[in-house]
Amino acid sequence: MRAIQITEFGGPEVLTLTELPDPEPGAGELLVEVSRAGVNYADTHQAENSYLAPASLPLVPGMEIAGRTANGRRVVALTSSGGYAEKAVTAEPMAFEIPEGVSDEDALALIVQGATAWVLLRKSVRLEPGESVVVHAAGGGVGTLAVQLAKSFGAGRIIAVAGSEDKRKLALELGADATVDSSAADMTEALVEANGGKRVDTVLDMVGGRVTDESVRALAPFGRLAFYGMASRELPSPIQPSNLMRFSTTVGGMWLPHVWQLPGNVMKQAMDELFAMVAEGSLRPIQGGTYPLSEAREAHEALRSRTTVGKLVLDTRA
């Protein structure tokens, strides 16, 4: 089968198209003939071995797949690796049936980015009706869905932060009430101004560095910031407990794999709600581009440039 393989860690240049044997499923696993593979920021960290879960070589990257099983089931699934290939293996609990009315591309937008936005709002910041929410990287895969979900969940004011006029315009079309340029010299001041002069209640942050530090300083009493990525590849300053007490603020992290450890099958709850919203037309995954499998390098370059909008996917048949 054709696959993208990494034999040394690094940037997009280490992604190489090659021929490999078909993977063999073990007990409790499914072999999926992949039609589309999702691309996300975690993949770029996996390629350079800077992800939360250490990688080993050689490696076929990719953690999101959509396609059909041997018995014809149409599924979207998560894998620890191996997604950038014509065939991949996934654990049965990590696979979800794609309902009618939902495309493979839309399903891939939901399995990580959609579920991440849902968990951030429902579990991490526990958004209450009427509260303000800041969505950083609002033009990205998570951001475009988080803006829409926040609206559906009753947010009082949605502030979308993005780096281009087109992305900010899209956020407004998706339901944001105000926008902020991500290059703002003082993010604290910009967020407070966008919230009508008041500090904000909740922040979804996947940027890191200065943006995180200044977003924390924009939180209102009992405000919450959920940190779920580091697109800037810059670490924020260490959090001082005394500073949290100053405004009774909460800063937490979220990594989607931990959702499987929660009682009540939270991931299934998220996927069921997201699938239903897409099928009925109340949630619109934004597709940012489909690349042939052979152009995985170009997809990573585009993603790392932070100029893309919505969800990027690889067509494993092209």
Rank of each mutant, 00 (worst) to 15 (best):
Q261S: 03
V14A: 11
R157I: 09
T44N: 07
M245H: 02
T179S: 08
K151A: 01
A220G: 10
T144F: 15
D272H: 12
E24W: 13
V259W: 02
W255H: 02
Q269P: 05
E86S: 12
G114Q: 06
G10Y: 09
S237P: 06
Q240L: 12
A178D: 13
L149D: 00
V259Y: 04
S232W: 12
E105W: 15
A53V: 12
N195P: 09
V60I: 13
H300G: 07
R233G: 06
D315C: 10
S282M: 01
T250I: 04
G252R: 02
I159W: 08
A162P: 02
M187F: 15
Q261E: 04
E33C: 08
S305H: 11
V142I: 11
T202P: 07
L30M: 08
L170G: 09
D213K: 08
I98W: 13
E234M: 15
V76M: 05
A276W: 03
T18G: 12
G289H: 06
R74C: 13
S80H: 09
T44Q: 03
G72A: 03
E301P: 07
R217T: 08
T116L: 04
A150Y: 01
G141F: 05
Q46C: 04
E8Q: 12
N40T: 02
A107I: 05
L57R: 07
K151P: 00
P99G: 07
A91K: 14
Q287R: 12
R233W: 04
G139M: 07
R233D: 06
G288V: 06
D43I: 08
G140K: 05
A162N: 03
A296E: 10
A296Y: 09
V207K: 15
L204E: 06
S35W: 09
T44K: 12
V34M: 13
A318T: 10
T249W: 01
T307Q: 15
V192S: 10
P129K: 10
T307V: 11
E64S: 03
D201A: 03
T290A: 09
P257N: 02
A88L: 05
D106W: 14
F247Q: 01
E24F: 11
P23V: 13
N243Q: 09
N195A: 11
L256P: 06
A150I: 01
Y84A: 02
R233Y: 04
S237E: 07
K87A: 11
G196H: 03
P129Q: 14
D104M: 09
P25S: 10
G139D: 11
G229S: 08
A160F: 04
R122Y: 04
E24N: 10
G114A: 14
P93D: 15
E298I: 01
L174M: 03
W118R: 00
G140E: 02
H300I: 04
L52I: 05
N40P: 01
A3W: 08
L30E: 04
D201W: 06
Q287L: 13
I158A: 02
V125M: 00
